[in-house]
Amino acid sequence: MLSRLPGALRQSLPSLRAFATSHTALADASIASSTKEFTDEFAKVAPPNFNPPSYPSDFFEKEERKEETQGVPSKVTLNFYMPHDSHLKSEEVDMILVPAVTGDFGVMPGHVPTIAQLRPGVVTVHKEMDKDVSKYFVSSGFAFVHADSTTDVCAVEAVKLDELDPEAVRGGLQEYTAKLASVQAKGDDYEIAAAQIGVEVYSALNSAVGS
């Protein structure tokens, strides 16, 4: 992805990263200074039996910041989770295709940090580009693309595409389509919403198994 950037912009990336790192360090130093000033003023007016206030940062382990010295990795590190299981963990892959609410997009090494809501659709994992490919149907969830090219796909439900029964999918679509028509006549908003979700999911399933 970075190779597609104009030469001048690509050459400026290291300095931009350095600026971002130094800017963050300055912000941390400023916060620490403000905290100390407040604590000092508090000690002047607080009764002797009052302990100094605690801050949220006091409860987190301190981590040393490391400047980014490495370039874009050659692989995307993929974590593919569900609430009750995980399909992939720390798997190095070439590319991931993600079905987002805002539109499908691909994740390759160097992708910009992104948070995307998943829609019912197919997550395609290219462990090796166009050679070792796995497809999973997801119902919903979120995808998180981090700056280090680690990507977390967190789905409510996910199943391998080749494990789906096309006949069962078509039957489910027919059932929910009929149910939607029935509840719309009754005007029950809850039942209408539930039926619409069923139609949406089964329509996506039907498209997936037919592809």
Rank of each mutant, 00 (worst) to 15 (best):
G121K: 01
E157Y: 05
S34Y: 04
M129T: 12
H111Y: 06
F42V: 08
S140D: 15
A143Q: 07
E128N: 12
A116R: 00
T124V: 09
K62E: 12
V153R: 00
M95T: 00
V107K: 04
A100L: 10
F142C: 01
K66C: 06
G121Q: 06
Y81V: 15
S149V: 08
N49K: 04
T69C: 09
T77V: 12
V101L: 14
K131S: 15
C154P: 01
P120W: 07
E67M: 02
E163M: 13
Y81E: 09
F38D: 00
S74E: 14
K135G: 06
P99Q: 04
T150N: 07
E92D: 15
E92L: 14
A155I: 03
V156D: 10
T114Y: 07
F59V: 12
P99V: 12
E157S: 09
E92A: 13
K89P: 01
S57N: 05
V153P: 03
N79K: 07
N51E: 10
H111T: 03
E91R: 08
V145R: 08
V101I: 14
M108G: 04
T102Q: 10
D130K: 13
F59M: 07
P109G: 05
G71E: 03
T114S: 08
V76S: 07
V122R: 13
A46S: 15
A143R: 02
F142Y: 06
N49H: 10
D165M: 06
F50S: 10
S86Y: 09
V112M: 14
K66L: 14
D94A: 15
V123N: 00
Q117P: 01
E91D: 11
D85F: 08
I96N: 02
T124A: 12
E92I: 02
V125Y: 00
D132M: 02
P109I: 02
R65K: 14
A158D: 08
T77Q: 06
D130P: 03
V112D: 11
P52Y: 00
K160E: 14
T151I: 07
A155P: 00
P48G: 09
V112H: 10
T69A: 15
A143W: 03
E63K: 05
S74A: 15
K36Q: 12
D58K: 02
N79C: 11
P99S: 06
D58C: 07
F38P: 00
Q117M: 04
M82G: 06
E64N: 15
K135C: 11
V159T: 15
G103Y: 10
T35P: 00
E37N: 06
V112F: 13
V122A: 02
D85Y: 13
E64T: 07
I96V: 15
F105G: 05
L88A: 10
A147K: 10
V133N: 06
E63I: 13
K135N: 12
F80C: 09
V125D: 00
F38E: 03
L164T: 08
S149D: 05
E37R: 02
F142S: 01
A158K: 06
